[in-house]
Write a protein that binds this DNA or RNA. Structure first.
Ligand SMILES: [Mn+2]
Ligand SMILES: [Mn+2]
Ligand SMILES: [Mn+2]
Ligand SMILES: [Mn+2]
Lengths: 257, 257
DNA sequence: GTACTATCTTCGTCACGCCTAACATTGTTG
DNA sequence: CAACAATGTTAGGCGTGACGAAGATAGTAC
């Protein structure tokens, strides 16, 4: 009747499984659980003993298996985490149902509480904010599909191509025109406008993911200003200053984002 | 010289640690690693042997520790996952640095490849799309802080309060006015407009998280139409039909989002 | 060179979580 | 009510990952 230490990922999955099976068939049998989790029957016995010791399931050998009230509460919490992650993956990131399900069921065991709450808020928010919403997610989808020939909204295209803004939004652009990757300081972030040069060098840069619209951050600059360590699309990338100068960019605002 | 099976979460963390230590001090010593990971010195020896067996570290007893080329590549991949998650948490979800760091370092070991890529795309996208961007994230932040007195942009407020739209956007609202939670069908989603009633019942609904602007989905309806299972803010919630009728809502579009 | 200290390894132990094989129970069915 | 198949349990083993205690090594101090 006390949870003592936190449950292992494995035991959380057992609880989750029992809850779902019981929701269908009222009680769970060992076989149902082993089928659902794809483990050997004897593993289930072991898990049930561990869960019974913690007062989370009612279990006696050869008897039917049910969750205690406390077990039910814990199972519901696991399921909440599972569904929150899955919903975010499907609704916001447009991940396919199966991957979302599998990924959620792994991550649910390790995600910190405060991050989980934010995921949930985020899904709500995206559905509420009129600047976001359906439209916005569809744009995100086509944005993903468009790599490396990335499609942006017309407004973005304008921005990326460095034409002066007509909308009095904010000073999103510092100075359009001739800024290159070689001009950036550590910590600055920029959108790629164009890769100059030709032949081998040009091709090599493109192959590295240097396509218009991509966001690039300067991570580090070596003592003598060469080479420079960039990050784009999650990858680190080291360029000679000569190469960096071939890449025209539009600097993004400092600070967050 | 062969990775054979996938590395365990623990071994990935060792690689990550060695990489970072080596980045600072050129070589790693056992002590550095045990300090960084908060683990006993003897555990490090064990891990190093396992990593050496897989050809990921150069290791001989009492000798200096370095990563092999393959080990370096694997470490870089782990770090990519770590940073992608962390950046998403910090830049998009506005999670504090430490929680983001810790959460990322747990989740990095279980996140499916395709979901990771989407996270990375997402951060890029948010920074690129003019309908999103800094503004949008700031709104998300105040949205989070505002629970339960949620602040929306003026446009959203209008929508939530059910006034007919003036902008010819889309038919986002089905029929404003008198739709309640009791009128929804399974799978439908709605924004909460107002909780009617008074006294105990009213208070109880508010306590359950029924505040204006929240998104509610109908998960299940019992055989005789009572009770109804809802989901809001990641929680499941079961209401009597009587109670559900007290909650005025605005239906969201069918399908995705 | 010996002594001392910081560092590292070895060894024995434990807790998980899964497996297989052998054994036990249950409930059906002729 | 046997005989049987289905289901569940036990025992024994393997791999991982951590720990502490005790012994080994390397580098510095005298
Ligand atoms: Mn799971
Ligand atoms: Mn799950
Ligand atoms: Mn980690
Ligand atoms: Mn990490």
């Amino acid at each position: 009747m006390s949870e003592s230490l936190a449950l292992s990922a494995s035991l959380e999955d057992y609880l989750e499984a029992i809850f779902h099976i019981a929701a269908d068939k009222k009680v769970a049998r060992s076989k149902d659980i082993s089928n659902r989790l794809g483990v050997n029957n004897s593993s289930v016995t072991g898990a049930l003993r561990a869960l019974a010791e913690r007062g989370l399931v009612n279990y006696a050998p050869y008897d039917l298996i049910t969750l205690t009230d406390e077990g039910k509460a814990v199972a519901e919490d696991v399921i909440r985490r599972h569904e929150a992650l899955r919903d975010f993956f499907v609704r916001v990131l447009s991940i396919d149902a199966q991957t979302a399900e599998e990924g959620a069921c792994k991550m649910e065991h390790v995600i910190p509480q405060s991050i989980l709450e934010r995921f949930i808020e985020f899904v709500d928010f995206v559905e509420l904010c009129p600047r976001a919403g359906t439209d916005w997610i569809q744009k995100f989808e086509s944005f993903c599909k468009g790599v490396p020939d990335r499609q942006l909204c017309s407004e973005c295209i304008t921005l990326v191509e460095g034409k002066p803004e007509s909308k009095p939004d904010e000073g999103r652009e510092r100075q359009a025109g001739t800024i290159t990757l070689g001009d950036l300081k550590i910590g600055q972030r920029a959108r790629l406008v164009k890769v100059r040069g030709q032949g081998e060098v040009h091709k090599r840069l493109i192959d590295m993911g240097m396509v218009p619209g991509v966001v690039i951050a300067v991570e580090r600059i070596a003592p003598l200003g060469d080479p420079i360590d960039f990050k784009l699309r999650g990858y680190h990338l080291s360029l000679r200053k000569e190469e960096a100068k071939l890449v025209t960019v539009a600097v993004l605002e400092e600070g967050r984002v």
